[in-house]
Design a protein around this nucleic acid. Sequence first.
DNA 1: AACCGATGGTTTGATATTTGAACCAGTTCG
DNA 2: CGAACTGGTTCAAATATCAAACCATCGGTT
Lengths: 261, 261
Amino acid sequence: MGTITKALSLLNHFSASRSEIGLTEFRNLSGQDKATVHRHLSELTANGFLEQNPGTKGYRLGPAILRLAAVRERLFPARRLVAPLVEKLAGELGELVHVSLREGDHLSPLYHFDALIHGTRVYFDEAELLPLHATASGLAMLAFGPTDLLPKLLKTKLKPSTGHTITDSELLKQTVDQVRNDGIAFVDQGFEEHVSSFASPVFGDLPEAIGTIAVAAPSVRMTDELKAKIRATLPLAATEVTEKLGGVVPVDLRRIWRNAA
Amino acid sequence: MGTITKALSLLNHFSASRSEIGLTEFRNLSGQDKATVHRHLSELTANGFLEQNPGTKGYRLGPAILRLAAVRERLFPARRLVAPLVEKLAGELGELVHVSLREGDHLSPLYHFDALIHGTRVYFDEAELLPLHATASGLAMLAFGPTDLLPKLLKTKLKPSTGHTITDSELLKQTVDQVRNDGIAFVDQGFEEHVSSFASPVFGDLPEAIGTIAVAAPSVRMTDELKAKIRATLPLAATEVTEKLGGVVPVDLRRIWRNAA
DNA sequence: AACCGATGGTTTGATATTTGAACCAGTTCG
DNA sequence: CGAACTGGTTCAAATATCAAACCATCGGTT
């Protein structure tokens, strides 16, 4: 792992529930040497990617990130473009919908919305990277994303998130093949207990998925009726998101989706 | 310059007018070796801070930045908090107002708003880092920010942005002293030709400026009347922004502002 | 087709930086 | 006091960097 990757990985330890992290905590989370972590934190701070709370000495995400995010959204306003589509689908289904983009061998949440019409709801952390083998989104990405994604992933050990996570290489291959045939992925409690989700791929201008759109609901609410409704609407939403992002759905997948409808 | 700084500095070459940058262009902009730049770009891409356009091979800002920005805004919604104050002041004055936060030895734009009531207007690039010695915001930061900021800056060569930029150490020291007495900074065409601006510091919980609020207008519109109006309103706005961000204005500066009013 | 001048990307081996175990210093708590 | 935490710093050994040369590919020109 290169220096830059080590440093940037430190930033991934922030989450909705952990906004400020100290040196020792970073060392524990990253497993790196303390001196190294410290130099990395200093350098990230000097560049505005972190800022240090003068009182607690803890580190927080810094202003540089906001500045760069503003630039990206201005040039390629993906968040703004997909937001209405996500909200519309979430409203129709009454469940949590999220769009994520591939970030290396994970998926990075871009936008999510929950209609909040039910008492129980699925918790979704925008800061958390989604693993490819444990989530419906991940399976959709493995099936329709870059072809070297699955082989690379199979070289690593598949870490279970729950007792239901697929950790067997052969089973993962078969499941991905099935997703490729169906044009939609379904996972029950693979990432979080008691949560089921569906996902379909979203494309850029190449016939290679750049992200996914997914619906997640508590498993108890995932009835045959809701499943049918999701299967009927999700491919359409994926097509709309793809078009909003200036991409095209590959013809063979378009055919699969049409036949399913 | 450390590896991480070199890599992160690459990201600063993006701007509103330059959304996609190729390897050779990065090499020219950064002055670094091509092989090094390429390795850095690859590593940034692998971590989602950049993404590569498969067609042109150029690099763009990646999804990781959005993800982290969402986390930061959720934990410390500075942008959302200051936006209404910036817009209110911009409306009252009819000119461009911006709030920036310190990012190492520069200022990083956090939010800006232009009432757009005049035909000519000041161009403001959210992606661009503001130098401390050339802008009103910078002088306010030098006067009220960390005490080691000015000495450190004086050790480097002061690069002129226009013919009016202060590049003399002695003059800069005097000017900063004056800003410290006035509680407000004024610069005429120090950063952009034909643009004048005022700035006051904004504080966190320590008696040390963390950022600034500034008004910029075409020099021809900067009449005595407008100047008086800005001097009367900017300190109040700076106080409001400080309070929104959960900080306090140091008592001695509060006295200066009160006496001026 | 052959050529040119760009581009992105890779390799090599001497050189410089990063690394990590141990070390230092300040707090907090019994 | 001393133990157990913090955050932060030092100096041989591992790793990254640099410069220059190289390869492949693209789009236009002769």
